[in-house]
């Protein structure tokens, strides 16, 4: 995936806001990339453009060489908190994307069923979301996104609605599922530790208008490659401190 010279201006009666200014970024297939940056620097805007929800003022987004024009099944978006429909069963929540795209066939639904099975949710098929724990709901939300088989996953502060302990566990699970399914993913977060522990690369953006300030390649030496374990790695602190300084948050 490649972002080329992306510029985005928002217009309102009061002012013109330049949210992004010629932002460029490349993400290789299978990579997990996190984007961190000061509040309001345009992180969500980048994801919205990649997802095809906003038309950029200038520049373009290419996914496997093809330009993004509007929402498509090539990109999967994980919203803030799970956004499961409480009036649908887990199974019908998982099928939502396929239904919208008119791709509900025996083949696709058996793929969705296979995902539920693989990630231990098959027994909750007919249950309603309110009967599931926060972590399980997030897993269902991820499967809902994976069911349409996107090439690229976008996660916008996907865990921020969870309490701290659940958040660690869910981040762990989501990371494992994404790497087992071999998906490329871009995560937007405010949590530096989360970014470092989950990603291959951490991209730091400048204040608004957002541009790339620095890209850190994360290499952690830890016995088990899970986000929780990775926090114990010796290099973790250095990355954390480096990124923290770059964000230059003044209190």
């Amino acid at each position: 995936m490649a972002i080329k010279d992306l510029t985005m201006k928002f217009h309102s009666p009061e002012a013109e806001i330049t949210a992004l200014d010629r932002l460029s970024l490349e993400v290789m297939e299978g990579d997990f990339v996190s984007i961190v940056g000061p509040s309001g620097c345009g992180k969500s805007t980048v994801l919205n453009i990649i997802a095809g929800l906003f038309e950029p003022t200038a520049g373009e987004v290419l996914i496997s060489g093809r330009k993004v024009r509007g929402p498509s099944s090539r990109v999967g978006y994980m919203p803030q908190s799970d956004q499961l429909f409480e009036w649908r069963t887990i199974w019908r929540n998982v099928l939502l994307g396929l239904e919208v795209q008119g791709k509900l066939t025996r083949e696709t639904s058996s793929f969705a069923e296979h995902l539920l099975e693989k990630y231990g949710l098959i027994e909750f098929r007919e249950a309603y979301p309110s009967h599931l724990s926060g972590g399980m709901r997030q897993r269902v939300a991820l499967i809902r996104t994976l069911a349409v088989n996107p090439e690229l996953l976008l996660l916008d502060e996907a865990f921020s609605a969870l309490d701290y302990q659940t958040r660690l566990l869910v981040a762990d699970e989501v990371k494992q599922i994404i790497s087992r399914e071999n998906k490329t993913a871009i995560l937007v977060t405010h949590d530096i530790a989360e970014a470092i522990s989950m990603s291959d690369f951490v991209v730091v953006l400048t204040r608004r208008p957002g541009r790339v300030k620095n890209i850190h390649r994360i290499v952690l030496t830890c016995s088990e490659k899970t986000p929780i374990r990775c926090r114990e790695a010796a290099e973790f602190r250095d990355y954390f401190y480096g990124i923290w300084k770059e964000l230059d948050v003044y209190v």
Binding site: P71, S72, S73, G76, Y77, P79, Q83, F85, V148
Partner: peptide, 20 residues
């Protein structure tokens, strides 16, 4: 956010109305 999630699947306005 619910509407947005559906729109990223490519939902039309009619689908957004009917499904969310």
């Amino acid at each position: 956010e619910k509407v947005k999630m559906l729109r990223t699947f490519g939902a039309t306005r009619g689908q957004v109305l009917r499904m969310v």
